[in-house]
Every structure is written in structure tokens, then in C-alpha cells.
Design a protein around this nucleic acid. Structure first.
Length: 474
RNA sequence: GGGCCACUAGCUCAUCAGGUAGAGCAUCUCCCUUUUAAGGAGGUUGUGCCAGGUUCAAGUCCUGGGUGGCCUACCA
């Protein structure tokens, strides 16, 4: 290393590439025939020497191209330098003509080469998969070693780009709302709490975008959406990370039926673009998005599973049904919470094909408009696919008097010890009091969606830098 | 949160009943002018996660802690 550093530049400033690994393969016949000199940069992934020759697979973002160093071509001094001082992990650029080896591998016959960056720490061993922990903790190594990891994250990017394209086609305006909020709201979750020094005040990191996006509807924007990180101070597991990417969209004059149609258009488009003719495979499951999505009323689904019309039962009778289905009841659970538990237990596991679950109990949806026909229900839907809840949507509550009363109910829950209930947001109420048009809103968990579209069973596989405990304790 | 399991060389893993640690890859030396998990000969590589305890003796058994994985519960 010291010896090498004195002779050659190890960390130059740039390199002029003529071809990447894919372009070289695509233009192979023309490049080989005309003996065109290519300049190809990348990272050394292996080193196979045979006396006076050296084969070096070089990998770039898109794939790998092999370089062939030959003593007769480079001269003794230069060849010895390559052989001794090039290491796996180094970035180099090679210049030469393309040919096919005896074993039919497209190869650059090197006439000249340049160090682009010397690695002084080795890459991981190549024959075994890195553990998920190592992949997640040292993503740069995962990406360096595994083309399929690079492809998966490029796919994530393409999915999000396509979602933006969809909303652009639908004439939605992309906006940005605050991450740091004086009050959190829009979902039931515990927030991360932080502090603003100059104003000496507590701020919360958002758990949802909802209340700010609705202010924009009040302000007169008719269709808005945001794709951004939300933060929830809760458990982590295979499908949950403390910070996660959420899509929310709102449209004036729409109700939840309109939103259902929009959601179906979006998901079908993604399934066609990223799946196999509108079909997706997730683990053992096979989903078809070509047919109209099933639409299932929440209470009807429960009735089918329990054989009882739970709407007509008393609170005690509902609790008894839940117990008979093996659900552990807690004191803080209201009637609607119990219904929700029943639903999760009895219905959700069967929701493999895309299914809209509609018309939920009211208590669980403090920001949704009451159902126009059924007392005690709200106009809400959730989209389930492969057992995942992918999207959540309401006809948004826009009556400020009703909204205030719902907030009061939430406040009662907080006082009863529910630390996930939503606090009263006077500023938001004030905005609504100034008039919010009828509005449809929808939220979608992008990470879940990407898991589904990439057939990944762990959220860490589709987050570049998932949250991890610090290594080594403390 | 609860349960089960794991942690040994830079990486992936062995060490079966407690006797003081090994393989492949990487690395180092040498041979080899079309290799591709190249091959051949030889060498180096360890706070056995941490801290206690039991024992003549602990990577191995016990206790506590740390980190990770899987299952389970809840929010996306």
C-alpha cells in the first residue's frame, strides 16, 4: 500500500467511461468486430491468477464484466504491479478491447488500467449469504455483494416514481407538510417527542400527514398528496419500523367510493407494471388484480363468521361472542374495539385477494364521516391484500361540530389511560370551522406495498437503512 | 411486551460426553499465459458477546446482562 501510493494515484478525481457492463454486452458484436477500445470502471469482485495471466471480474451497478490482464500485453513491471497490488474490493477502470474467452465469457483484454479507489478493508466472503443482520447493518456491503439487493431497491424507487406518475396523471398536487408538529394527530399511535431550543417548546414528529393535508383542502387546493416519512414510537418487527413511508391523498368533492375507485386504479396499475400481467406472487400466495376488487362490509363479514348480526346485540353480548372466539378482553376495550379485535382474528387472515373492507364502527375512526345510511358506522374502507392492510380511507369528516365532539370522545379515552388516542387539535378545528368541502382521503403504507410487489417478507429487506439497535450494547 | 433459539478467525460455519480451538473463503510466500467457488504446495489469523459463579480444569455447565433471529400480540 505504501509502496503503491508513492508510485500511482490511488484516489483520482474522475474517470471517463465509454460503456457500463450492460452497454458492453448489448453492443458486443460491433465492439468485438471493430476492436473498439472500451473504458470500463467498477469494483473488483474476485481475482483469479494463472501464472502470467490474471482474470478479474469487475462489477458495476448493473452487473459484472471480466477483465483479462496478460503479462505479454502489459509488460513485466506493470503486470507484476497488477498481480501484487490489486485487491478484491478495489475500484479500478480498465481500458482495452472486448473478446470471448474459451469458456465463452465476454472479457476486456486490458491494455491499460487505473486505480479509482483502493480498498483497505476486505469485502465479505462471497460463497455464503450475509446474515440479514449484516445486510441491514452494513447495507453498503449488501449492495456491493448482491446484485439482487441493488435490483430490489431500484424496484422500490421505480414503484414510488410510478406512484408519483399516477397522481400526476390524476391531476394531484404533490405537497410537503411539517415533520415537526406542535401537536400530533391523524392516527392512533404514540409519537416521538423532541424539543425546539429557540422557542423552548415541545415538538412531536408526525405520526400522520392528515391534519395538515386537510388544511390545504380548506385552503382551496382540490387534490393533494404527499409521500413522506411518518414516525411512530412503537414496537419493531418484521413489518414495522419506527420511521416508515406513507402516502396520503385528499380530493375535494369526493367521498370514499371515489377514493375506492382511485385506490383500485392505482393498485391495479402497479400490479400490471410490476407484477406478471396484473398478478402477484407473495410467498405461497397468488393474487390477481385484474378483476374488480371484492367489496365487503365490515359487519357483514363478522356476521358471516359468527353467525350473528352483531349490530343488534348488546355490548355484553358482543363481549360474550368475542370470548367464545378466544379473544382476550381488556377493561379499556370499548364495544367497537372488541369488534375490531374480532375482525382481525376472524376475517383478516382470509383476505388474500384484494378486498375493500367497508363501513367500520365509529369509535375507531374519529376523523371519518358518519355513514349516510347506517347508524354507528362510518364511511371508511381498508384495502387488504395478502393479509396486509395496505390502505385506509374515509369520507372525511368535515362538520366541525361533529369533529369537536369526536375529539372530546378521544380526550375521554386519553383520560382513561389510552396513550394512543388522539389529542384535541384546536388549530385544526379552527381550520375546519372556516369550511372544509366534502373530501375523500386515503392513506397507504408504502413499505408494505413494496414488500408485496417485491415478494419480501421482512421490512428490513426493503428499507435501505432499517432502524437497528446500536451494535455492542449500551 | 411474551415465548423459543443463537452469538467461536475479516466472512460463512464446525468443535457430538467440561481437558485449554478448527475448516472453507479472505490474507501472506511459492508454482502455473483463457480462469470463472480456478488449481497445487506451505504459512499467519482468535478478549470463543460481556460480567460473575461451579470445577483440578469452562467456548462447553449455572446466574445476570448485551445483541440478533424466529414465533406471538398491536399500530402502516
Amino acid at each position: 500500500m505504501a509502496e503503491l501510493g508513492e508510485k500511482v494515484e490511488l484516489y483520482p478525481y474522475s474517470y471517463d467511461r465509454t460503456h457500463n457492463s450492460v452497454q458492453a454486452r448489448a453492443d458486443e458484436s460491433q465492439l468485438v468486430e471493430s476492436e473498439t477500445k472500451v473504458r470500463f470502471p467498477g469494483r473488483i469482485m474476485a481475482k483469479r491468477g494463472t501464472g502470467k495471466t490474471l482474470f478479474v471480474p469487475i462489477s458495476d451497478e448493473w452487473g459484472t464484466l471480466q477483465a483479462y490482464f496478460r503479462k505479454d500485453d502489459l509488460g513485466e513491471e506493470r503486470f507484476d504491479q497488477v498481480k501484487r497490488l490489486i485487491d478484491i474490493g478495489d475500484w479500478i477502470g480498465v481500458e482495452g478491447t472486448l473478446f470471448r474467452t474459451r469458456t465463452d465469457e465476454l472479457t476486456v483484454k486490458v491494455e491499460d488500467f487505473t486505480f479509482l479507489a483502493k480498498a483497505i478493508r476486505p469485502l465479505p466472503e462471497k460463497f455464503h449469504d450475509m446474515s440479514l443482520e449484516n445486510k441491514s447493518r452494513r447495507r453498503h456491503l449488501d449492495l456491493a455483494m448482491n446484485l439482487e439487493s441493488r435490483e430490489r431497491f431500484k424496484l422500490r424507487s421505480a414503484i414510488i416514481t410510478d406512484i408519483r406518475g399516477f397522481f400526476s396523471d390524476e391531476e394531484y398536487l404533490e405537497v410537503e407538510t411539517p415533520v415537526l408538529q406542535p401537536l400530533y394527530g391523524g392516527a392512533t399511535a404514540r409519537p416521538f417527542v423532541t424539543h425546539h431550543n429557540a422557542l423552548d417548546m415541545t415538538l412531536y414528529m408526525r405520526i400522520a400527514d392528515e391534519l395538515y393535508l386537510k388544511r390545504l383542502i380548506v385552503g382551496g387546493f382540490e387534490r393533494v398528496y404527499e409521500i413522506a416519512k411518518d414516525f411512530r414510537n412503537e414496537g419493531m418487527d418484521r413489518t414495522h419500523n419506527p420511521e416508515f413511508t406513507m402516502l396520503e391523498c385528499y380530493a375535494a368533492y369526493w367521498d370514499y367510493h371515489d377514493m375506492m375507485d382511485l385506490t383500485e386504479r392505482l393498485i391495479r396499475r402497479l400490479a400490471i407494471t410490476f407484477g406478471n400481467e396484473g398478478k402477484l406472487t407473495y410467498g405461497d400466495l397468488e393474487m390477481d388484480f385484474n378483476q374488480p376488487f371484492a367489496r365487503l362490509r365490515f359487519m357483514d363479514a363478522l356476521e358471516e363468521k359468527t353467525g350473528q348480526d352483531l349490530m343488534t346485540l348488546s355490548d355484553d353480548e358482543v363481549a360474550a361472542v368475542a370470548k367464545s372466539k378466544g379473544i382476550t378482553l381488556k377493561k379499556t376495550m370499548g364495544r367497537d374495539k372488541i369488534l375490531d379485535e374480532l375482525f382481525s382474528e376472524l376475517v383478516e387472515p382470509d383476505l388474500i385477494q384484494p378486498t375493500f373492507v367497508m363501513d367500520h364502527p365509529k369509535e375507531l375512526s374519529p376523523l371519518a364521516k358518519a355513514h349516510r345510511e347506517s347508524d354507528g358506522l362510518v364511511e371508511r374502507f381498508e384495502l387488504f391484500v395478502a393479509g396486509f392492510e395496505l390502505a385506509n380511507s374515509f369520507s372525511e369528516l368535515n362538520d366541525p361540530r361533529e369533529q369537536r365532539s369526536r375529539f372530546m370522545d378521544q380526550k375521554a379515552l386519553i383520560e382513561a389511560g389510552d396513550d394512543e388516542a388522539q389529542p384535541i387539535d384546536e388549530d385544526f378545528l379552527q381550520a375546519m370551522e372556516q369550511g372544509m368541502p366534502p373530501t375523500g382521503g386515503m392513506g397507504m403504507g408504502i413499505d408494505r406495498l413494496v414488500m408485496l410487489l417485491t415478494d419480501s417478507n421482512n421490512i428490513r429487506d426493503i428499507l435501505l437503512f432499517p432502524h437497528m439497535r446500536p451494535e455492542g450494547g449500551q
